[in-house]
Computed example of a mutant assay.
Amino acid sequence: MKRVVVDRPGGYERLRVEAARDPEPVLDEVRVRVRASGVNYADCVIRMGLYESAKHYVGYPITPGFEVAGTIDAVGSLARDVAIGTEVIAVTRFGGYASHVVVPRAQIFAKPRALSFDEAASIPANFLTAHWALHGLAKVRLGETILVHSAAGGVGGALSQLGRRAGARVIGVVGRREKIDVARGLGCDAVIDASSGDWVARARVLSPRGYEIVLDANGASTLRASFELLCAPGRLVIYGFHSMLPRGRGRPSLARLARTWLATPRFDPLAMTGTNRSVLALNLSYLFEQRAILHEGMRDLLVAFERGELVAPPITCFALDDVASAHRALETGATVGKLVLVAQP
């Protein structure tokens, strides 16, 4: 097998592709011959050494990757209900940047027939994050108005689609004019181009009474304004801190990290109670023990994809050997949709 290994935190040069013996499944495990692996911003944070759950669960050296699509090519003694050759999606807590992965039987799902392997690998991390954010935490309701940051990105696009599916009015924010049409195509009723002026003022015009839900992965650069845009009652859901991290340089700046950490708002529970506004947060990698949550989310999502209620995001493919280019592209902030790594036959 081939896999990507990060021996220790650093820049793009730390992404090393190596050959290794194929892993063998035991007991309730299955081995997936990977056709495509999803690339997430969290993988870049893992490479930089700033992802807490990576240090908690694995440590370094580490193989990034939370999701793959491929075919079953070996099973353990307690997983013989799965046929060799079955096309599946697998969720992984790290290890997905490889040509073969072994995962518990409970972490594989039948690939929807309508999706290619590349598209299927784009689903779990982004859509499970979005599903738990909207349905598990924020409890989105019919007719609510929601604001989605980075609405043309992976999780943002999933949030836009799921918000539309739930009957909410979806307002998206994007960082570049060329992303407006992408966000509209993913379900936004209106799109704000933050690069063209005061995005907060525009957001207030589009929903003068405020927003029931705001979904934000930017961190210090937008969190305070996101909270202030909430109506009462309103819920701010945080699932990342992208503004703390470098754009296309590969390595974090300690000075920038310190500045943005200091600038990150601390929300006062007394003030939240007094204004009837809440702050919620999630990190998908800590939910893997909650198999009921993962299965409920994946079942709902895969049925929706089979029915055509959801569509895969725009896909950009990179060879597994070109993983550094994928990370570099993602960190520029210029990409739309989802990046995937394609394993060579």
Rank of each mutant, 00 (worst) to 15 (best):
D43Q: 08
L78R: 15
R35N: 03
E144F: 02
T92Y: 00
G70C: 07
S122P: 07
V155A: 04
G49L: 06
R141N: 10
A54R: 01
H149T: 02
E67V: 10
S37P: 02
V26K: 15
R33N: 10
H135P: 00
V82N: 06
G38W: 03
S122D: 07
I146F: 05
D81F: 02
T86Y: 07
L147N: 11
V88N: 13
I146N: 00
A83N: 13
H131P: 00
E144Q: 15
S53N: 12
L134A: 04
V101L: 08
A110T: 14
H135Y: 15
V88E: 12
S77W: 12
A69Q: 07
W132R: 06
Y97V: 02
F127P: 01
T71G: 00
V88K: 13
D28W: 03
E87T: 04
L50T: 01
I108A: 12
A121L: 12
A90F: 06
E144C: 10
A69G: 09
V75S: 10
I62R: 01
A98Y: 05
F117L: 07
V103L: 11
G96W: 02
S116I: 00
E29S: 12
K55R: 15
L27F: 13
Y51S: 04
A54N: 03
C44H: 11
A133I: 02
Y57I: 08
A120S: 13
A98M: 09
G70F: 08
G136F: 07
V75R: 13
D43E: 11
E119W: 00
Q107C: 09
P64C: 08
E144K: 08
A133F: 01
G76T: 06
R35Q: 11
G70S: 09
Y97R: 05
Y51D: 04
G136W: 03
G154C: 09
V102H: 09
T92I: 01
V82F: 14
T63R: 03
I72G: 05
Y60V: 09
C44W: 01
I72N: 04
E67H: 13
K55A: 10
A98F: 03
G96E: 04
Y60C: 10
A152P: 07
V88R: 14
V88T: 13
I123H: 03
H135W: 12
T63I: 06
G85I: 11
V32P: 04
F117M: 11
F109N: 03
R93P: 01
A106L: 07
D118W: 00
E29Q: 15
K111R: 15
F117R: 01
G38Q: 07
L50Y: 11
P112D: 08
R80V: 09
C44A: 15
F109K: 10
T129K: 05
A79H: 10
P112K: 05
A133Q: 02
D81S: 13
V102R: 08
Y51E: 04
W132N: 01
R141W: 06
V102I: 12
S122T: 14
H131D: 14
R113L: 15
G95I: 03
A42F: 02
I89C: 12
